[in-house]
Design a protein around this nucleic acid. Structure first.
Lengths: 139, 139
DNA sequence: CCTACAACCTCCAGCGACTAGAGATTCAAG
DNA sequence: CTTGAATCTCTAGTCGCTGGAGGTTGTAGG
């Protein structure tokens, strides 16, 4: 197994420039090169990149992924830290959901009350123009 | 009413550099200046900036706000477009909520199944390393 | 062996929506 | 008139990529 960056891209679903970017920021190691300076990867890199992609899809930040990767390299250590990172992230996701849910209900109200007439009577515009028109204290 | 940018900032809750940024990108008009080139604002600008802030808090993008502002300046026109923008945004917010909810349940599962032992057995790490461990097809 | 051409290389700029800092100037109060 | 907080412009940085220019390499077919 000695694949090019394009093949790694296909194997992982991560775009080629993104792989190079991950190398630049230290998420992926600098791989060996051919005589012509092209990158060549092995199985470990496929696994590592899949780990990264998956973590990104779950919304972990690059800094958190860096820590998670470092942990997965030390299988004998305690996983308390990984747990803590995941919990922190979960709390953040929940915070974002709550916030978006508040926005959703405000937007629903705006849209529902719009009588589809002139701008002058439009609830959408009115609510934006005057905070007191808001039902919730979401902001 | 002839206030400085700092007073406008206090009146609107928008930071001073952000107000200058809004001017730069054309959301706020270039205001008159004192002899010493300092910006001076009137009531219209306070209202406009509150409109912008509120729309941003509701998650509207700057481009959408630009359109909403243009509409609020034409009170006699139909508000169908404002309605459409709000609906599009609502749909986007709902999409984000659904996505985050899927992430949340995956994270909850990860965290719940973590037995707080060694990294080698950590569910958090395992799930990240292998997509097949995922309960949902959220990604 | 030679040619074509897809894939690769590096470097740099841009996205959105700010935020922060340097270094110079101005306003307003005392 | 002095002081010092506030303002000014300009530039660069944030995050996580993404795209392009312009040049080089790998590989398959003839």
């Amino acid at each position: 197994m000695n694949i090019s960056i394009g093949e790694l891209s296909r194997a992982s679903g991560v775009k080629v420039p993104t792989i190079r970017y991950y190398e630049q920021v230290g998420l992926m190691p600098a791989p060996p090169r051919t005589d012509g300076k092209q990158r060549r990867y092995g199985e470990a890199e496929v696994a590592r990149l899949n780990f990264i992609r998956h973590a990104r899809e779950l919304g972990f930040e690059v800094e958190a992924i860096r820590e998670l990767l470092a942990m997965s390299g030390n299988p004998d250590r305690s996983c308390a830290e990984a747990d803590a990172i995941a919990r922190r992230h979960l709390a953040e996701v929940e915070r974002r959901i709550d916030r978006l849910a508040a926005l959703r209900s405000e937007l629903q109200r705006m849209v529902a009350e719009c009588s589809h007439g002139r701008v002058a009577e439009c609830r959408v515009i009115q609510v934006l123009a005057d905070h007191r028109e808001c039902a919730h204290e979401h902001h």
